[in-house]
Design a protein around this nucleic acid. Structure first.
Lengths: 198, 198
DNA sequence: GAATGCGGAATGAACGTTCATTCTTTACCT
DNA sequence: AGGTAAAGAATGAACGTTCATTCCGCATTC
């Protein structure tokens, strides 16, 4: 819930730290890290330029906090509450739907995470967060491989194809190529499973 | 061949314009548009800072020239010389292989085009180039749809899934997750076709 | 009235761009 | 051909601007 608040609460009522994070999320996503000026973050957040430095050590610290918080939230949201005994085919469906839901519910955060993936100004801790997500993905497909329900290919490759297709789908829908209905989401999920199923 | 020259010729022997374009391609890809300083482009190109402005009106003009040239080259390379009567399944294989070849042969240009896709500082002409590629993709899948050899989904969606998977695959291989062998490229192609085939 | 939080002008570094100057090539004359 | 002058390219220090960050005075709280 804290994340929803951070995105959608009016910036005047919210704490200044959250207002700054919200403003930075939007501007970094729209204009990129180097393309965003700190005073413009302050303006959008409705705070003085100096106030940002009461909460964040530097511009880099700000972008890293944002990246860590959202990446962590994304991973947690996608992975939570799936019983281990759930059939893997069903797990795939669940994860797929959660990925799409995440992109629909937090479109700016989705864009932010996409844009800043592997960026050179991300620090060790942010990189570690990226790896956590990567490991979860790989271990899921390793699990699938052990059950021989997917093609015998490196799990990293299966993950890359599926996640790539997911990102492509969301970005195209965002670009206005089409509007994603639940039916289309289900069909895309079927496509992705057929791509990798044994 | 002119493109190969632009990427790989020693900058000292090449014309200054090409040296500048090569340097800018590398730096814009590594550090992004706003993260790259013009004097650093000049330094890498082995020319004076002012010299850039004899060939390009501004930093934006430089990035747009780069984008247009490479996008145009990419589209031309992918689409050239495929007889209309070639079976669509075979055409798919050809286009897939050419996409992967392009990314392998021009890795920096691939990264550049990916990073700057839809960037706000691209001008009308660059956008038009993007659309040319998009149209080619869509019309190929429309063709497939008419022959009823792919799932009955919007052609933009089929394209988004396949190209997304392609980008995901190349990026993962670039990140060091695995080394792409021809066998893996073929297997990935099969995956993508199975994803969309009827 | 002391302490804390905040705003926004101030600061110095770095940016994109310009321009007076130098170097290189070309053209012409003898 | 040799010599000279004009033209064109190239240069990099310098310019104005913008940026991330700092700092100081004000407001608010206890």
């Amino acid at each position: 819930m804290t994340k929803v608040a951070r995105l959608y609460e009016g910036t005047e009522t919210a704490g200044k730290r959250e207002a700054i994070l919200n403003a930075a999320l939007r501007l970094f996503t729209e204009r990129g890290f180097h393309g965003t000026a700190m005073p413009s973050v302050a303006e959008l957040a409705g705070v003085g330029a100096g106030t940002i430095y009461r909460y964040f050590e530097s511009k880099e610290a700000l972008v890293n906090t944002l990246y860590r918080d959202w990446k962590n939230f994304q991973i947690t949201t996608i992975l939570k509450d799936v019983p281990e005994e759930t059939p893997l085919r069903e797990q795939f469906r669940i994860y797929w739907n959660r990925l799409v839901e995440f992109a629909a519910e937090f479109p700016i955060a989705f864009g932010f995470l996409e844009l800043h993936f592997h960026a050179p100004y991300l620090d060790e801790e942010s990189r570690a967060m990226e790896e956590r997500g990567h490991n979860a993905l790989v271990s899921f497909f390793q699990h699938c491989l052990r059950q021989q329900i997917v093609k015998n290919l490196p799990p990293e490759m299966l993950g890359a194809l599926v996640v790539g297709a997911y990102v492509g789908l969301v970005k195209a829908s965002r670009a206005g190529c089409f509007q994603l209905t639940q039916e289309m989401i289900d069909q895309a999920e079927a496509c992705c499973w057929e791509a990798i199923r044994r």
